[in-house]
């Protein structure tokens, strides 16, 4: 225990010191890495652990984002409160989505389709809903000179770096506790064979709803960060299909069914995206980045079909602890 804690503390200390050496852009990219790693972990609880494929996580990003933004902007509610509200709302929404699907035994691809349908439905509702600004979007005011980042949860790159690092650390710790508890075992049993799991007493329905709900709730908080980072929200960008796909690339590249996979994935995918954009700009060819990014992703999927974490874990002889 002691050694592990010391190592963890050392690692966190290194990350805590990074801002002293990095510029704002690098910090922003790292903050995005933390954010995508965090969402990847949340999504992976549902997919990699409980075996339920969601292709509609934009629903929780979007609802979380609008919740935090509208509460702050319209009602002056601090995001410190907005975030828990976003969590609760998204957890409830996810539980509802899950319960509907699982109740009627919608499994596999059909469940994935259902998650897309819910997200798209919500996007269309938001695009026609005056209260959230319709397609015109919703915007946060600019920060005043008296802004205190740790109270408004908005600030410069260094602030977001630390805030998202904390979010990732907390999300990781919570997920680690969950997956090593009874719940985690039951999730994995469901993932492997739901009927066999039920035969040995796993309450599959309840556990799947729980997985969806925790995953959705955690993703809702990530949505809140999207709002605070960008200051502008549009149904198409936060609730659209593209968002649903963007957030699952990191965990897929990193590898499903582990907590390290999504983190590794985010550390690869986000910089890869930036790097390919740099190359496109360097050679002055618009769209070259998509080509490079796509080709690299294809190579990863070809050579490491189960993601990059498992082979790395094997290399380091960590295979028992996938």
């Amino acid at each position: 225990m002691k050694r592990a804690h010391a190592a963890a503390a050392a690692f966190l200390a290194v990350l805590a010191l990074v801002p002293a050496a990095a510029d704002d852009f690098q910090l922003s990219v790292l903050a995005l890495i933390f954010l995508f790693a965090y969402i990847g972990i949340a999504w992976n609880l549902m997919m990699g652990y409980a075996g339920q494929l969601s292709l509609g996580h934009a629903l929780y990003i979007g609802v979380g984002a609008y919740t935090v933004a509208i509460l702050a902007e319209r009602y002056g509610v601090t995001p410190w409160l907005g975030m828990p509200v976003a969590f609760a709302l998204c957890a409830a929404l996810a539980a509802l989505t899950g319960a509907l699907g699982f109740r009627f035994a919608v499994r596999g691809v059909y469940f994935a389709l259902l998650t897309i349908a819910f997200a798209e439905f919500t996007r269309i509702v938001f695009e026609h809903w005056e209260f959230v600004g319709k397609t015109g979007g919703f915007f946060l005011r600019a920060l005043g000179p008296d802004n205190r980042p740790w109270s408004s949860l908005r600030g410069d790159a260094t602030f977001f770096y630390y805030a998202l690092l904390c979010t990732l650390a907390l999300g990781w710790a919570l997920s680690a506790a969950l997956v090593s508890s009874r719940i985690g075992y039951e999730w994995r049993a469901i993932r492997e064979d739901e009927d066999a799991a039920r035969a040995i007493g796993v309450r599959a329905f309840r556990m799947k709803v729980l997985a969806a709900s925790i995953s959705g709730g955690l993703t809702g908080i990530a949505g809140g960060w999207f709002a605070l980072l960008g200051g502008s929200l549009f149904p198409e960008t936060v609730l659209g299909m593209r968002m649903s796909i963007d957030v699952i690339i990191a965990p897929i590249v990193g590898g499903l069914g582990s907590l390290s996979g999504p983190i590794l994935g985010a550390f690869i995918v986000v910089p890869l995206n930036e790097l390919s954009r740099d190359l496109a700009q360097h050679f002055n060819i618009n769209g070259l980045n998509f080509l490079i990014y796509g080709a690299l992703l294809m190579m990863i999927v070809l050579f490491a079909p189960h993601g990059l974490w498992p082979p790395i874990a094997r290399l380091l002889r960590l295979h028992r602890w996938k």
Binding site: R3, A4, A7, A8, F11, V14, L15, V18, V29, L30, I33, S260, I263, L264, F267, I268, V270, P271, I312, A313, L316, L318, R320, W321
Partner: peptide, 16 residues
């Protein structure tokens, strides 16, 4: 092993 995992992540950050 857990520790190693973390160190690895740090290495990734460096590369990035």
């Amino acid at each position: 092993n857990r520790t190693r995992r973390r160190v690895l992540a740090a290495g990734g950050a460096g590369v990035a």
